[in-house]
């Protein structure tokens, strides 16, 4: 288990480094000089040069890459071109909002989707199973930004049940949660259907396996058969998927943050990319990659914890 964990952590670090390098080179692949684009057509050569120095673009490429890595390790992601504040600070202000949003979206999707999938599998071909199936496919095919817009129109504008924009008063937890409901609903909805389908499929497979028949042949209570003998196995593909799901949710969060005008990583990247504020964009994307990699790492370790066969084979 220790060896496996170390292996996974090493892989996660490697992924982060590759991501950083790609990210770094991306700035040079995008056409146009960042400094002149940022300053507009009427900027003088001196102004451009000053900005280039400030952004570190005057140094040799290898040096820039080295600096980028070295600074990132120490938590320094550079300074915002416009406000000159540390990028790390800017991100740390926005990150909790996005994490709360993604967490709430995924959380409600898990709470509803997994039991729904189990129910569907156990009561296969029942009316509820069929209704769940149709609704699931519907929610999976609906883009989250569309859901967000309709939610906004229906629940915030027409019914006025929930606030339309913002993330709530700072320090007022109840108000923040209140503001979280609609966006979290919007980005989690598709995952409810997805998880329900996935859990149903793997649960059906496990319920048909021989060891479940053994458990039943010993007269174990049905609740124990389902929870301990079937779900422990059926949940494994879902855990792996959830690690990946965080990536999808973070990009879903961009739309939700735009539609609901919530502060967060998505809104930050959207705004700053439009202004070619490279240090902030790079820092934000890097942190997003980090979050994604950590989530996958956690999912991998969780699967290993739940499935002794994985621990053994590695």
């Amino acid at each position: 288990m220790l060896y496996y964990s170390l292996q996974r952590v090493a892989l996660a670090v490697a992924i982060c480094m590759v991501a950083m390098t790609i990210l770094f080179s991306l700035v040079y692949v995008i056409p146009g000089d960042p400094a002149s684009l940022a300053l507009g057509p009427r900027a003088t050569a001196e102004m451009k040069e000053a900005l280039r120095v400030r952004m570190g673009l005057d140094q040799p490429l290898a040096m820039q890459l080295y600096n980028f890595f070295a600074n990132a390790v120490t938590g320094n992601l550079g300074y915002d071109v416009w406000t000159r504040r540390p990028v790390t600070t800017i991100i740390m202000e926005a990150l909790p909002y996005t994490l709360a949003l993604a967490g709430a979206g995924l959380g409600w999707a898990i709470l509803i989707g997994i039991p729904l999938g189990c129910y569907s599998a156990i009561n296969r071909n029942s009316l509820m199973d069929k209704i769940t199936g149709i609704i699931s496919v519907g929610t999976i095919s609906m883009p989250s930004f569309l859901v967000a817009v309709y939610c906004l129109l229906l629940f915030a504008v027409h019914l006025k049940w929930f606030p339309a924009i913002g993330a709530g008063e700072r320090g007022d937890l109840a108000d923040q949660l209140w503001h979280l409901v609609l966006p979290a609903f919007a980005i989690g909805l598709g995952w409810v259907g997805y998880l329900a389908r996935l859990v149903r499929a793997s649960m059906l497979e496990v319920l048909g396996e021989s060891h479940v028949r053994t458990a039943r042949a010993f007269g174990l209570p049905e609740a124990m058969v389902i929870r301990r003998y079937a779900l422990r196995l059926a949940i494994l593909p879902t855990v792996t998927l959830l690690g990946i799901a965080v990536g999808g949710l973070l990009s879903g969060a961009v739309f939700a943050e735009l539609v609901f005008n919530r502060p967060g990583i998505g809104l930050l990247v959207y705004n700053e990319a439009a202004r070619r504020n490279y240090p902030t964009v790079m820092g934000t994307v890097l942190v997003t990659v980090g979050v994604f990699v950590i989530c996958q790492l956690v999912a991998d370790l969780l699967v290993a914890l739940l499935d002794p066969r994985v621990r053994r084979s590695l």
């Binding site: 021989s210 042949a217 010993f218 209570p221 049905e222 002794p308």
Partner: peptide, 22 residues
Amino acid sequence: RDLRGRKATMVFQDPSTSLNPV
């Protein structure tokens, strides 16, 4: 359910699949 495992139990054909792997 009360009868299974009390009055009668079963040993299945393939022991590689008849025990819970996790």
